[in-house]
Design a protein around this nucleic acid. Sequence first.
RNA 1: GCCCGGGUGGCGGAAUCGGUCAGACGCGGAGGUCUUAAAAACCUCUGUCCCCAAGAGGACGUGUGGGUUCGACUCCCACCCCGGGCACCA
Length: 808
Amino acid sequence: MIYDHQKIEAKWQERWAESGVFEVEADPSRPKFYNLTMYPYPSGALHQGHVRNYTYGDLLTRYMTMRGYNVLSPMGWDSFGLPAENAAIATGVHPRVNTEAQIARMSEQIRRLGAMYDWRRELASHKPDYYRWDQWLFLKLFEQGLAYKAEAPVNWCPNDQTVLANEQVVDGHCERCGHEVIRRKLSQWFFRITDYAERLLNDIEKLEHWPERVRTMQRNWIGRSEGATFTMRVEGLDASFEVFTTRPDTIFGMTFAVLAPEHPLVDEIVAGTEAEEAVRAYQEQAAKASEIERLAEGEKTGVFTGRHAINPANGRPVPIYVADYVLMGYGTGAIMAVPGQDQRDWDFATRYGIEIIRTVQPPDDFEGEAYVGDGPAINSDFLDGLHMAEAKERIIQWLEDQGLGRREVQYRLRDWLISRQRYWGCPIPIVSCPDCGLVPVPEDQLPVELPDVQDYAPKGRSPLAALDSFVQTTCPSCGGPAQRETDTMDTFVDSSWYFLRFTDARNDEAIFDPEKAAYWMPVDQYIGGIEHAVLHLLYSRFITKVLYDMGLSAVEEPFERLFTQGMIRLGGAKMSKSKGNIVDPLDLLASHGADALRLYHLFMGPPAEDADWDEHGIDGTARFLDRVWRLAIGQVGEPVEREETDADREVLAEAHRTVKKVTEDIERFAFNTAIPALMTLVNTLTDYVRAGARRQTLDTVIELLLLLLSPMAPHIAHELWERTGHTSLLATEPWPEWDPELVAREVVTLILQVNGKVRDRIDVSADISPEEAERLALESERIREWIGDGEVRKVIARPPRLVNVVVG
RNA sequence: GCCCGGGUGGCGGAAUCGGUCAGACGCGGAGGUCUUAAAAACCUCUGUCCCCAAGAGGACGUGUGGGUUCGACUCCCACCCCGGGCACCA
């Protein structure tokens, strides 16, 4: 670099902080813009993913500020969580000490990028003044019956010794440590997100400015399916079970029924029978096998229970099997099996020699096994001849009329399991009293502070459970001896409402002031990684809806626009410490500076897509900044005083076209094309100055250039703004407007084609008529050569762009 | 298997509405200027092929094969490949 970037960066970072430009208050007289980047886990070291994230975010903060918006851009820390706790187990250093040191380190690094935030609103989820409101929120959910405790089979990570939400299990393995996950029964806390399933699903339609991909993932996650539930009687016993099906129209094709191995009825129907032993063995094997093994096997296995159930539609007894391809966690854990219309049932039936009855007539050319498509019903009594939709309606009506079943909607979404047997999280504010049961800690006693412990190692229960001084308390209701809940909350609880807290972060009377939140919310632009497409974004939507229902949030959806950035790769693999392919941004800050680093991130490729890191790429953006520097301080050449010429006017026009291009590119998140537009302008200006620039034109154009550069490479832009004689702070200057008349080209190049191939180009006036364009085309010598002896069949004139002569 | 993305020079990528010889801008590479030398900077060239002394000119070219159109990287159909997500969900 030809200038001292270190010095300039430090100088302007200090000036911006002093100016208070990015410290904002709710002001209903001004249009607001809430710009948020996902708050980071304080790992202590900035990586390129952060740099990309904050570069985009800061660009928007600065751009919208220049556009005159009241821009809220806060920063905080997702500071509870496993990494700090694991570090504490390894080193014995308290997670708080570690976490706070890392926060200090990381916030310093973020400042060095020149990214600006309203630091007065800084929050950290591990601090009592924050998690106190987690607890308050928990109590509100508890009051409404939306938080409940239940015995449930849970996903258990033997390595982390904790419970995982379904969402945190990836391919049967722990999302964090990769260890295989097993099932286990435990008493756990849940949030009743399923109560909101329908709304969460329907409102996806409102999220027009979200990537389609994220909307699809959320839709699939919620997984709504419509069908019917009906009861099946077990023959010869006073027992029955319910099945859920999306294809009640195929009920006459049922040739067997299946219960999940965990189904509570299994023990009862086989007790004392010949089948008991085989069924027990099968159950044990199914429970032992991990989900991975169950799936990997592919072959459908099961055992006959010796019992039959009655098909309510025709009174026919069908054999009941136990098979692990039916899952206890979905629907009722029991199905009616229709092998003619379901491939899984087909596979099972062929293996065990069970009868197959088709109830939908497949097309003549159908060659598959089970037929799942539409067609007229057959072998189905009163449904015969009806097509799928109509048959479904008819049979559901019939089941309801007979009192045998009902229409039902099932969701794949389960309740959100929020308790963790971990130390470094927010304590759940509940006291368990032998007389009163589960009693909420009164609001005025919040926060239930996280006490210090000696031993962080998990032993299947929270480390807090070993701490008598914490556990033993008195019941808030009866005053008798009672015990505190020792589980802590999933950190996704912390992050599902932090964006609301930012609107009023220092409030110690309430979670936030609804009026302030009403001004700032929704978040106008949310920027973060695609990895949060389901978990964090779904939980945030849920909690926002709960707060909306409580009258605290004015909006039902928290994030108006979502942008998910791509990841950064090196040598084809995601940059990560474990792979050892890290390019440390701190090294680049030292060698090339924040502006060059930011610019390279913007230039690298489409923001939404993954990008490969090129070790020389940043050299290019650094060279560009050097060129800008030389140009602005007059090192390329000195301009002269003279009358304006056409060439001067063309340079000005190009500058205005660049203003238009850059503005439109920022608006559509196409930063990777905004930078080349600036580079092209600088190339033009360099040539212009070498050829002898007119002073007034050059000054105007440099001014435009610095304004455009200001959100992208703010340090150099501010320095040069000052050095070119301005006394104002560039960050608060209005964003430049382009002059439409200058932008419009007077003379354009008209393309002349023969049979769609370009054969000549001529300069014409931009407002040329089609007739005139056609005349000029036919007069062109080169066009006439290419027409030759051919007959002109048609002339397509699209002035001022092109004329195409069709020759036969 | 299903659902999303995507496939353009040596590389990252551009082409916003079907219309400026497709390849902007940058990286890398080659040659040159300056210099005792080097670095930096600057200049020229840089899709493939044909043709030409040169200027110029021509053909081909956006994963493959078809189609629509005066005109296709762009739209339609089929297929191949890569990346991601989901996956025994009844």
